[in-house]
Amino acid sequence: MNPWVMLAFPFAQHAFLAASFVAAAAGWIGFYVVLRGTAFAAHALPKIGFAGASGALLLGVNSLFGVSLYSAVAALGIGALAERDRRDVATALVLALGLGTGALFLSLGNLYAEDAMSLLFGQVVGVSALGVMETACVSAAAVLVVAAFHRVLLFTSVAREAAAVRGASNRIADWALLVGLGLATSAMMPVVGALLSFSLLVGPALAARHLVRRPWQAILTSVTLSLAVTWLSLFLSFALGWPVGFFVACLSALAYAIARAASRIFDRRPLEGMA
């Protein structure tokens, strides 16, 4: 179908609006994810959110509520377990438990194939006007959390020892990022789906890191790229009828590949001249 024609319909407009809020939040938070190298947590939280959404479907409550609750508990769980054990082990275990309960909810609710697919890969055309409002609020909250801790997040990532001496706690930074990620996940899940939220978090931000040096420039570039990737993906998805997530993943990877090649050609090194 012609995507320009589709844009006249309210459902397509809602989809574009919701996806834009989500993309901006993902690009912003992705900057910190890349800076701190917490790819695993960024990958795990959306998947756990999927379990929360299937639980909400089973009980018949708002899926945003289920995703938020599950992401929040998972973020706290990962944070708490990581204080006693290795972070990646803690993340893997919480992820497995979350997904296990998700599988149970799906089978108990007889929600198989179709519902699971839309949760995993996004159901962007199903967003209502109220859904757009919810998405906007949660995305804004996610950005506010990380923005409030911007200096701590930056300082503890770039110069951990110096930050410790000056009293900036790495633990607080970790928690802030996990909470921000959890919130962003709740906003992203219904739109791009659990499996591909991760692409949007990491791809544009990694690309931005190869293109510019200063933190604020990197955040702006990352947000811009993320928006561009999302809009183009929605457009292609409307035109071809294939899942949005597929295009999001391919275009994010493409953005990263191009940025990396460009930084090679112009011989710029990521974020090293900054400190």
Binding site: V34, R36, G37, T38, A39, F40, A42, H43, A113, E114, M117, L120, F121, G193, L195, L196, F198, S199, V202, G203, L206, W242, P243, G245, F246, F247, V248, A249, C250, S252, A253, Y256
Partner: peptide, 26 residues
Amino acid sequence: GERDLATGVVLSLALGFGALFLYLDA
């Protein structure tokens, strides 16, 4: 951290294709 991130990009690309294949399966 850097290895994880590079892995992550490859992973998301693979997942994108996984999404497409599952969609076509359905």
